[in-house]
Design a protein around this nucleic acid. Structure first.
Lengths: 133, 133
DNA sequence: ACCGATATGTTATGACATTACATGTGAATT
DNA sequence: AATTCACATGTAATGTCATAACATATCGGT
């Protein structure tokens, strides 16, 4: 499951492993702290790895948390469309939904406005099923 | 248009005016700098005002920019549903769309997951009509 | 062996946001 | 008028997130 992927560098693998095993969003500095025993010393070591992992779609950045999560989906398939992140403020759990209606409608509106979309962010914050009264 | 609203405090009015007149997203520290001549000295003076303005829906926070904008719409009506922010990375312009399909579908999915939504963020980054080649 | 591209290490700094505590201000009550 | 309470404000310090700039290492292809 969390086996390291080919052609990830050492730092990239370490960061990816950390995120995968956490199963929850981590800040760059939390990752840094967890990797100090592996020789990490500076934020940039983490941020550089994160950038590469983001490029490859192995992880996601949660803008509303300033944090990063490992992608839930298998990386065999490409991510078509926009991912909806559903984030529980109580337990910290994050779910990824790929909703065709939302994706299509966002793209439709962008086209209407003649806006060229480079990236899209959709995040729902709230309280998950398991955490409610 | 940018006339100060009733029962805004002095600091809240100043911050709101600054954002309204900018017509574009500003960071809290940019606002601070613009208000130094009015006696602002510390970030907290800005953040506190921003919090109140956010509560009242007079401004929005753009998560992907760590910045704030005055709401485009008139405040006479309530904001029902989720607002889609369309952000041009070239000219910095921000558009607010209120899309019923997107709002409804997001809420539908949340209900399906028994997720209680407290806040939603939808931001499209890219290049606007006026800024393309 | 050489070269170029990419990854890494390190220090310093910049940018964004909050904690903690003190003080002012104004409306409602006595 | 004095008291009280809620709220807004002032200020310093600190915490959190992210990048610039520069040096060194590693590795594949020629």
């Amino acid at each position: 499951m969390t086996a390291s992927l080919p052609d990830l560098t050492k730092n990239q693998s370490l960061v990816f492993e950390t995120l995968s095993q956490a199963g929850a969003p981590l800040s760059a500095y939390t990752i840094l702290d967890q990797l100090r025993e592996h020789g990490f010393r500076a934020p940039l070591q983490v941020y550089r790895a994160l950038d590469k992992l983001l490029e490859r779609g192995l992880i996601h950045r949660l803008e509303s948390l300033n944090a990063f999560v490992a992608c839930q989906h298998n990386h065999s398939h490409n991510h078509l469309g926009t991912t909806v992140f559903v984030i529980c403020g109580t337990c910290g759990d994050v779910n990824e939904l790929n909703d065709q209606v939302v994706s299509d409608q966002l793209m439709r509106r962008a086209v209407e406005e003649n806006f060229r979309v480079e990236s899209a962010m959709v995040e729902l914050r709230g309280c998950c099923s398991g955490c409610q009264d």
